[in-house]
Nucleic acid binder design. Structure first.
Lengths: 254, 254
DNA sequence: ATTATCTATAGATCTATAGATAATGC
DNA sequence: ATTATCTATAGATCTATAGATAATGC
C-alpha cells in the first residue's frame, strides 16, 4: 500500500477500531451507518428501491457490498430506517405544536411547513420511496401506521383551523376537502420531475399559500399566518436544539 | 345469467390460430396483449416495476413467461405502452378542448376532470408508476416529454383562466401557484394509500373543487363550473365516440 | 478482545433467446 | 403458412452468509 497520498482530513481525530476500508474513507464526520443511509436515500430516490442494489450503495459509500450487512440486517432494514426518519420528526413536531398556545391555523401551517421542509431537504428524493409499494408489507407496518397517524394529525389540526375560522356550516363544507392539504404536501415528492432545488423551495411556498387558501383564509392574511408559523417553527427548533442547517457539510459521494 | 357449462364464454367465437394455452383462457374479450397490459398495470401498481417479474405477469395472464416476448420486445416496452396510454388521452382531450368555445375556467376544469378520471379508473394503481424513477431513462423520453407537454397545457389553460377571472395584478399573483393544480391531480396517485375505490372518487371531486378555489373562483360558482365542465366532457366523449365505459373493454388496436 | 472491514461464494433469482409444437386458414 | 404458444436454458444478475483479516484498545 502506498502512503504518499496524505489522509485528507482524519488528522485530528483518532482512528477508530476496525479493519480500514480498502478505498480510504473521506472523513466527513458521518458514521458508516449514516453514510449508508444517506447514500441509500439518494439512490432509492433516483432509481427506486428494488432497482437499487446493495452493491451500488456499498460502492457509493466506499465499502464492499457485504460490509453493509454488518450495519443492517438486510436491505429493507435500510429502507425502514430511512422512512421512520422522515415521518417521526414530523410527528414529534406536531406533538410540540399541539401543546403550544397557537392559533389553530398557525399551528397547522407550521406543521405543514415543517413537513415540507423535511421532505424537500437533502434526503433527496427519498420521497419517491413514500409511494413505494413495498411499504405495503408487514415489515413496514410501523412506518405505515406512523404515516397514518401523521395524516390524522393533519385532519385534526385542519378541522380545528376551519372551526376557528368559519361558521359551522361553511367549516363543515370545507372539511370535506381537508385531505387536499396532505395531498399537496405529499405531492412535493413529485416536484423533482419538474426542476431543480430552487424549484422545490418555490413549491413549498406555493403549497403553503395554496393550503391556506383552501382553508378559506383571506388572501391578505396569508403572509401573516405564514410568518407566524415560521416563528413557531423557529421556537420549536430552539426548543429541540436542532437548527435548520441550511446546507452544512457537503457529502463527497461520487 | 348462470352457466352450468364448463366452457365459460368462448362458444360463439371461432378459435383463433396459434397454439392453445396450457391453462385454458378465460375468454374475456381481451387480446393477450391487452391482458398483459392490464395485468402488468395492476402488478406494477401493487408492487412496483422492478419488483414485478415477467413470470408474475405471465402467470397472472395464464401464459408462460417466455410467451410475453412474443407480444413485447422486453419488459420496459410494457411499461412504456402503459404510460403512453394514460398521458396521450389527456393530451388529445386537451387539444379538443382548446378548439371548443368554452369559458377558460370551464376548459381547464374539464381537462382536470378528464385527467383525474383516467388516473383513477380501472388501470388500477399504474399511477404509482408515474413516480417511478426508471422513467428517467432514455427509453421513456417520449413518455416524459408527453408528460411535460401535459403540464404545459395545464399552465396554459390555467393562465387563461386566471386572466379571464381576475384583474392583471391578482392574476399574476395566483399564477405563481398554478402548478399546484397539476400537483393535486398527480397526488390522486397517492390516494390508494388512504382507502378504497369510493374514497378515490371523492378525492377527484375534492381536487376539482380545491383547484377552482385555488384559482380564486368564488365558492358559490364552483358547482356550476364543475357541471359545465362535465358537460363539455360528455360532448368530447360523444365526439370521440368513446363512452365513459364503467368497466367495458375498449377497442383493441393491437 | 472488539470492531469493522474484506474475500469468496452459495443459492436464488430473473430476463431474454432458441427452437419445438399445436392450433387455424389457405 | 402463419400465428401463438410451449419447453428448456444460458447468462447475468443480486442477496446474504461464512470466515479471514487488519485496525484499535485493554
Amino acid at each position: 500500500m502506498t502512503h504518499d497520498t496524505p489522509q485528507p482530513d482524519a488528522g485530528t481525530r483518532e482512528r477508530k477500531p476496525g479493519r480500514p476500508r480498502s478505498a480510504p474513507k473521506q472523513h466527513n464526520g458521518l458514521s458508516t451507518r449514516e453514510e449508508i443511509l444517506r447514500t441509500a436515500s439518494q439512490l432509492f430516490g433516483e432509481q427506486g428501491y428494488a432497482k437499487t442494489t446493495t452493491r451500488q450503495i456499498a460502492e457509493s459509500v466506499g465499502i464492499k457490498q457485504s460490509t453493509m450487512y454488518y450495519h443492517f440486517a438486510d436491505k429493507r432494514a435500510i429502507l425502514a430506517s430511512l422512512l421512520s426518519s422522515t415521518v417521526t420528526p414530523a410527528l414529534e413536531c406536531a406533538e410540540w405544536l399541539r401543546e403550544q398556545d397557537l392559533e389553530p391555523v398557525v399551528r397547522l401551517c407550521a406543521l405543514m411547513a415543517f413537513d415540507l421542509e423535511t421532505l424537500l431537504r437533502d434526503r433527496h428524493n427519498l420521497h419517491v420511496v413514500y409511494h413505494l409499494p413495498e411499504l405495503e408489507e408487514d415489515d413496514f407496518a410501523s412506518t405505515r401506521s406512523a404515516q397514518t397517524a401523521l395524516r390524522d394529525v393533519y385532519r385534526e389540526f385542519g378541522h380545528a383551523a376551519l372551526t376557528s375560522l368559519h361558521p359551522v356550516q361553511e367549516a363543515t363544507e370545507l372539511t370535506e376537502d381537508l385531505d387536499l392539504l396532505f395531498a399537496l404536501v405529499e405531492a412535493s415528492v413529485s416536484q423533482r420531475h419538474w426542476g431543480g432545488e430552487e424549484n422545490r423551495a418555490q413549491y413549498a411556498r406555493s403549497a403553503l399559500r395554496g393550503s391556506l387558501r383552501l382553508l378559506g383564509v383571506a388572501g391578505h392574511v396569508i403572509p401573516n399566518v405564514v410568518v407566524r408559523a415560521e416563528e413557531a417553527l423557529t421556537d420549536y427548533r430552539a426548543a429541540v436544539g436542532r437548527h435548520p442547517t441550511p446546507r452544512r457539510s457537503r457529502s463527497g459521494t461520487g
